[in-house]
Design a protein around this nucleic acid. Structure first.
Lengths: 239, 239
DNA sequence: GTCTATATCTGGATAGAC
DNA sequence: GTCTATCCAGATATAGAC
């Protein structure tokens, strides 16, 4: 699947995401009209992610946020009750989204190799659509309070389990070699994360998401799949 | 090489490192006696890394640092002139060290495959010895001022070039497949970094550095090396 | 060289006018 | 619902005693 196709398919525009969040947190938000609340949330989240990804969340002052979002201090505090709550809201924003999309995309694919390819692709495409959020989430996890931190770690382990699961299945039906599923899933995750953590690198080298997805699948594939004498090397090219 | 052997060999005790730094920054440090200055630097750096890795550098107050280091506010300011300078000093601390050790360890190894193994191992062992610094450096790069940030990025690209170089050599002498050296080096780096960025994960799973090094080499090797019919699969085990 | 005390500023949060 | 003005906790940095 092309990235553009994916982008349209999972129509998670910023508004949609924020509307969902607004509905989930109705009680805690003082604004009553949906239109206004969602509009403000969008502006705040976008600005907060931008500033945080430049200098870190804790170095971002709320005054700074208010000017970048084009709202006053008072207006900010109608959407959240403390800077810490804003952090929690931001984290929650992406987590459920990621799991939902990832699972829906690989559900029902029988061929393990194909499933692996699709999982890699989906994770990369997702992190491309929501790049600021992924980066933010990675960098700020350690600044959450204990229980929120735990949820973030669970989310990381959850996606890892998805990959480990595919590998285990592949080993069971004999198409994959006897690699360590957990270790392999761990490094796959590391390579997936590099895509959104080092945008400056891949962007600068003009590597597209599609190209990175193909490349990454090649690396993984050549490690886990049992070599068929003649097949080896046919999928070794990229770009 | 075993990790313990490596640890003794590169005898970079905290004191040694700080002494070097002290000598390099004599002018800017008010304390004149080497013994005292180095002792304080060690305490300060150790405490600063510990706190920063818990909550982030910008969230660390100097009061906090002074108590954790067992020094007064006044004493801190005899070692650096501002919080920002402390950040720069910390960053500089590890960079040169890494390059020096990494290059010295792989210098003069003719066999490309062996060289790759050694480079992976050395990088992992280094990041194990200096874990707090590696983690810190990764997380705080974006908070540096422009020119310091540039140096940090150069350092990242430098180690990446080391790996890309080995791959290019291996392709040239015909032992490696025609993979993309830059892309491959990039994901190798990503997997190396995962080791110190996700200590909670690997520590919790009781994975040792040696095991991770072997595993990682297997993954890389199976991707870049041309398969000899009979050889494939012989180095696919780990643990 | 190291300490305590303090000047000065910045940032999170809120009250009350519009 | 949004804005401005303000409170005050806590941060950096320094002065001066020991």
């Amino acid at each position: 699947m092309k990235f553009e196709t994916f982008k349209k398919m999972v129509s998670l525009s910023r508004e949609d995401i924020c509307r969902e969040l607004f509905l989930a947190h109705r009680e805690r938000i003082k604004i009553k009209k949906e239109r206004v609340a969602v509009g403000n949330l969008v502006k705040i989240f976008e600005a907060a992610l931008a500033i945080s990804n430049r200098k870190g969340f804790s170095a971002m002052s709320l005054r700074e946020l208010s000017t970048e979002a084009g709202l006053s201090m008072g207006a900010l505090y109608t959407c959240f009750s403390s800077k810490e709550e804003l952090l929690d809201l931001l984290q929650k924003l992406g987590r459920t989204m990621v799991m939902k999309v990832l699972l829906s995309q690989i559900d029902g694919i029988a061929d393990r190799r194909e499933k692996m390819k699709r999982a890699i692709q989906t994770h990369l495409y997702l992190s491309e659509v929501m790049q600021p959020w992924f980066y933010f989430s990675y960098m700020e996890t350690k600044n959450l309070k204990k229980d929120e931190q735990k949820k973030a770690i669970e989310a990381e382990l959850f996606t890892e389990k998805v990959f480990a699961g595919i590998i285990t299945e592949g080993i069971a039906d004999g198409r994959f070699r006897h690699v360590d599923p957990d270790m392999t899933a761990a490094v796959i995750k590391a390579m997936l994360q590099d895509w959104y953590l080092k945008q400056w690198k891949y962007g600068g080298r003009r590597v597209t998401v599609e190209a990175y997805a193909r490349f990454l699948f090649d690396v993984v594939d050549s490690y886990i799949v049992k070599p068929l004498k003649s097949k080896r090397g046919t999928h070794g090219r990229h770009r």
